[in-house]
């Protein structure tokens, strides 16, 4: 991936910046420039909105076959997380044993390496999710 394509999304990748529709208040992740509910009346009224990073597991899967870039992490867990703001986000779950994961488990965003462009390329950092300590 070219450097700029990743760099452009840093606010969303590091701090979960999405959008809030200034017309209906609905929240989206990642950024959208048009609210699918309000369409025309939302244009120019979409505001940057930072998610809290807290949420719960909506669904998940333990991934055993993955692209070579993720081989060292296998098996790893991918999940759809329902954020407290209602919007959902896809990310990996870390620091948790697979058998302890369940739908509804509380998680929060952490920052990890999500990939790189080879040993001499740039490193991509972005959010993953970890269980909230009891």
């Amino acid at each position: 991936m070219p450097v700029a394509r990743f760099w452009r999304d840093i606010p969303s990748r590091y701090n979960l910046y999405g959008s809030r529709c200034g017309s209906c208040g609905k929240i989206y992740f990642p950024t959208r420039h048009i609210c699918p509910e309000c369409r025309r009346s939302s244009i120019g009224r979409m505001e940057s909105y930072r998610l809290s990073g807290k949420g719960k597991v909506y669904s998940y899967s333990v991934v055993h076959e993955a692209p070579p870039q993720l081989a060292v992490l296998k098996p790893y867990v991918v999940a759809i997380v329902e954020m407290d703001e209602g919007v959902r986000v896809t990310g990996q779950l870390v620091d948790v044993d697979a058998e302890k994961i369940d739908i509804g488990m509380r998680v929060e965003a952490v920052l990890r390496k999500i990939g790189d462009e080879g040993p001499s390329g740039v490193i991509h950092y972005g959010f993953k999710f970890a269980p909230v300590p009891d």
Partner: peptide
């Protein structure tokens, strides 16, 4: 690609998450 694949979601795992929820 940007918000699923790059996050580690394979095409199979997306369907696995559907199955997980469907079974639940």
């Amino acid at each position: 690609q940007q918000w699923e694949s790059l996050m580690g979601a394979t095409f199979a795992s997306l369907h696995a998450m559907i199955a997980c929820r469907y079974i639940r």
